[in-house]
Simulated assay, not measured.
Amino acid sequence: MSEHRLQLAVIIGSVRDGRFGPTVANWFVGEAKGRDDVQVDLVDLADVPIGLAAPTMSPPDHVLQALGGLTPRLDAADAFVVVTPEYNHSYPGALKNVIDWHNAQFHAKPVAFVSYGGVSGGLRAVEHLRLVFAELHAVTTRNTISFHGAWEQFDGNGRPKDPHGPATAAKNLLNQVTWWARALKDAKATMPYQA
């Protein structure tokens, strides 16, 4: 089945010091790796040396060099899962820049969300991201995973203290995003997508 695996890019959207994103993303990647229909690529935006560059229509030259390793990974993905916190009722600026600088890489591909935060669990960030990805001709899945009070939801080993609910949510999300990935991939093989 390995030659038919979908390429799933899991993007850690926060680049701040002390961020909780890697804990959430690593848990999710562990859930996804239990499947035989996906190949996971964990994309940590903190490893892309773009800093918090001011948003522009096209990236500056030093950022273009930094994106040289990221762009092919996003291009190769059949589907995306964005792991995002909520900053000031929205999502991180570095994530927005990377999305804006990679328009075509998201065309006719599914995007799912794993969010985390305080009382809202990052859901307001997800609602904003749905609008952004619609503009990029991406398809967002209905199901999300949201960790409310995330810091209390995980143990010292980075695993959910109550694993059943999150594991079920991860399975449902992965079922949806892979269904859309196959449907869209098959459709594009039959007829090229017109953006």
Rank of each mutant, 00 (worst) to 15 (best):
M1I: 04
S2Q: 12
H4G: 07
H4F: 08
H4V: 04
R5H: 05
V10Q: 06
I12L: 05
I12W: 15
G13M: 02
S14L: 08
S14R: 06
R19M: 02
F20M: 03
G21Y: 13
T23H: 05
V24D: 05
A25W: 14
W27G: 03
F28Q: 00
E31F: 13
R35S: 02
V38N: 07
V38K: 15
A46P: 04
A46Q: 06
A46M: 11
D47M: 12
D47T: 14
V48N: 13
P49S: 14
S58R: 08
D61A: 15
D61G: 09
H62A: 10
L64T: 14
L64D: 07
Q65F: 15
Q65A: 15
L67I: 03
L67N: 02
P72Y: 04
P72M: 06
R73D: 00
R73S: 03
A76L: 05
A79Q: 06
V81G: 02
V82K: 03
T84H: 06
P85V: 00
P85T: 01
Y87A: 05
Y87N: 08
H89L: 09
Y91W: 04
Y91D: 01
P92A: 07
L95W: 08
N97H: 05
V98Q: 05
D100H: 14
D100S: 10
H102D: 00
A104R: 13
F106W: 13
F106D: 00
A108P: 02
A108D: 00
A108R: 14
K109E: 00
K109T: 00
P110H: 05
V111W: 12
F113N: 13
S115M: 03
G121R: 00
R124G: 12
E127A: 09
H128K: 03
H128M: 04
V132W: 15
F133C: 07
F133W: 14
A134W: 06
H137K: 10
T141P: 12
R142P: 14
F147M: 01
H148I: 08
W151I: 07
E152H: 15
F154M: 03
F154T: 02
G156T: 03
N157T: 07
N157Q: 10
R159W: 01
H164F: 04
P166Y: 09
T168N: 11
N172I: 05
V177C: 11
R182E: 11
K188F: 04
A189C: 10
M191R: 11
